[in-house]
Each structure stands twice: as structure tokens, then as C-alpha cells.
């Protein structure tokens, strides 16, 4: 898989947070990016879009990130889900990792963190 073939799903209720991550991914060469704004849409979109990598916010309306990561992993146990955590969500973060999320990154996201994750997925290292 090359970087422009990698399918990425971004899920965050803040349009600014989605834009920031999308801009970073585009700068890295990613081309196939789909955005959604709540956990329910993330689960539904995962099933039809079948992404290689998911970035999931924790605190969201309709369905939170913990429930969403659990449902995504029940559907596909090989899903690579990265939790994007805001300050003050440490206790949720532990739950998400326990539920099977692969890793987490802290917001505001930094280019190097995102690059590290994308490169690891590309190399099939996860």
C-alpha cells in the first residue's frame, strides 16, 4: 500500500479539529480521507468504507469514542483505531485502550505524531 492509497477515517465533533488533522494528513501525502462528526457515523462509515486507519475523538455527541471503538473492533478485530484525546479525558483514554484502541495522540495534534502513526501503518507495523 502506498500513502495515497491509504484509506483514513477521521471522527471528531469539532470541525476545526477535523480540519487540522486533515490538513496534516494531506501534507503527508494522504489522499483518501473521509470525515464524520459523531461515534455512530464512525461505526456506520467504518463498515462501508473499510478504512486502513481511524482517528477517533473520545468525547462526542450521539455515541462517544469508547462505545464507537468497541463496536468497530467487534465488527473488525484488526481495525487500527487511534484515539485523539483532549486534556481531561485520561480516564476515558484508559477505557479506550482497554477496549482495544491501538494507540492515542494528544490534541492539539502535532505533525510528527501523525506522521509516525501513518508511517507505522504503511510499513504494516501495527
Amino acid at each position: 500500500m502506498s500513502i495515497n492509497e491509504m484509506k483514513i477515517l477521521i471522527c471528531d465533533d469539532s470541525i476545526l479539529a477535523r480540519k487540522q488533522l486533515k490538513d496534516l494528513l494531506i501534507a503527508l501525502g494522504c489522499k483518501q480521507i473521509v470525515e464524520v462528526s459523531d461515534g455512530q457515523s464512525a461505526v456506520e462509515t467504518y463498515k462501508t468504507y473499510n478504512p486502513d486507519l481511524v482517528f477517533l475523538d473520545i468525547v462526542m455527541p450521539v455515541k462517544d469514542g469508547i462505545t464507537a471503538v468497541t463496536e468497530i473492533l467487534t465488527f473488525d478485530s484488526h481495525a487500527i483505531v487511534i484515539m485523539a484525546s483532549s486534556v481531561g479525558t485520561q480516564s476515558h483514554l484508559k477505557e479506550a485502550l482497554k477496549a482495544g484502541a491501538y494507540d492515542f495522540i494528544q490534541k492539539p495534534l502535532q505533525k510528527e505524531q501523525v506522521k509516525r502513526i501513518v508511517m507505522t501503518v504503511l510499513k504494516g507495523g501495527m
Binding site: V59, S86, V87, G88
Partner: peptide, 24 residues
């Protein structure tokens, strides 16, 4: 609001041992 409340939650956990979480 989310950032300010998140930092407040961290302070309350560190200073008052109160574990707070936030809704969207």
C-alpha cells in the same frame, strides 16, 4: 470551553482528588 474544562478536570484530579469527565 472543552480545553478550559479539561484543564479544570486535570487540576481538580491533581489538587482535590476529584475525578471529573466532560460531556461534548
Amino acid at each position: 470551553l472543552n480545553l478550559h474544562n479539561g484543564l479544570f478536570a486535570v487540576n481538580m484530579s491533581n489538587e482535590q482528588s476529584l475525578e471529573l469527565t466532560l460531556e461534548a
